[in-house]
């Protein structure tokens, strides 16, 4: 993805021109066509951002007052109430005064559960997939390519197809409503993670490995001391993507983790919505809960945005 850092591709109709050049890059004259193009792009950006702003605005509004100013871009009758309801720090009377149901919610618990589940999945999946990718990319053993092909076939099976029997298995193992049950199917590998890391491991220079071997290093030392450090960037990228996916997963934790103690945010949010009455729903509370579920991935994105963007473009080029 070297192209990312390069200056913009010159537009074909761009003949050498007299307009002043900006020191950092080139500037093209704004003809009507380009102006229109920018307008369309900005419109899409607005459409992308607006729901987030609306979520924030609603989460800071008093639910009872929402109907008085449904169009106001600012929070209506500003209050921290919805967030307090979501975290269970508002008393029943306070909650009901602002249009909440008064039922106590434990989003701290769900936040903790989501963190535990996503972290376990990320650590397990990335590490074990890296181990497997090392065996596929750097070690030679009989049947290796056939086994790799079999691993890849798992990519073709739609998740819902394996989720039903997996549910039966987790139930038989007595792991319903436990962290291991929620984590297990994603913990050891995904075909994508193995494939992704194998691509990088294939490209590592073999001289390092050979040199280490002459010094008497075994395969395990080579894996931990050479392969893993040399692949820290793709490992980090895979880790970030795995974490976000695990955080956002709904179907599986909804099947096996319904109990309050292990419920993750997505499941809790969906349950909160189901419990909300159709007449006079607590929109502010719902949006506050949605905000709580969205903010962690947004923070991850703020910290690692460029990495994520590049990795997605990388998978696109493959």
């Amino acid at each position: 993805m070297t192209a990312v850092a390069q200056p913009a591709a010159p537009a074909p109709q761009d003949a050498p021109r007299r307009t002043r050049l900006r020191p950092g890059g080139r500037r093209r004259p704004l003809n009507p066509g380009r102006l229109l193009a920018w307008a369309v792009l900005l419109l899409f950006l607005l459409v992308t951002i607006a729901p987030f702003l609306w979520m924030l605005r609603t989460a800071l509004s008093n639910n009872r007052s929402l109907f008085t100013e449904p169009n106001s871009p600012l929070p209506v009758d500003f209050t921290w109430g919805p967030l307090q309801r979501v975290f269970g720090t508002a008393s029943t009377e306070e909650a009901q005064a602002e249009g909440g149901s008064g039922a106590s919610l434990h989003f701290w618990v769900y936040l903790r559960n989501s963190l535990i589940v996503s972290t376990l999945i990320t650590v397990g999946q990335v590490f074990f997939s890296a181990c497997a990718a090392y065996a596929f990319a750097r070690l030679s053993w009989p049947g290796r390519d056939k086994v790799f092909f079999v691993f890849l076939t798992a990519l073709m099976v739609p998740p819902v197809f394996t989720m039903l029997p997996n549910f039966v298995l987790i139930k038989e193992l007595g792991l319903l409503n436990t962290y291991p049950g929620i984590v297990a199917p994603f913990f050891f590998m995904t075909p994508f993670a193995v494939f992704f890391l194998r691509q990088f491991f294939l490209g590592i220079n073999r001289e390092l490995e050979e040199a280490a071997m002459i010094d008497g290093a075994g395969y395990y030392r080579i894996f931990f001391r050479i392969i893993l450090p040399a692949s820290s960037a793709p490992l980090a990228t895979l880790g970030i993507l795995t974490f976000i996916n695990a955080w956002n997963e709904y179907f599986w934790p909804n099947l096996v983790g319904q109990k309050d103690g292990v419920r993750v945010l997505t499941v809790a949010l969906s349950a909160f919505r189901t419990a909300t009455p159709n007449t006079g729903p607590d929109w502010a509370g719902l949006m506050a809960a949605a905000l709580v579920a969205a903010v962690p991935t947004m923070l991850v994105f703020l910290a690692f945005g460029r990495k994520i963007i590049n990795s997605i473009q990388f998978t696109g080029v493959k």
Binding site: Q6, R34, L45, T48, M55, A293
Partner: peptide, 28 residues
Amino acid sequence: LTQSTVIRGVLLLPYLISNVVVALVWYW
């Protein structure tokens, strides 16, 4: 028009948010 990472980042943002959150926000 642009090579801006910020613009690409903003456009990517919804994809990183859970389906459940997205569904709720639009439901509202």
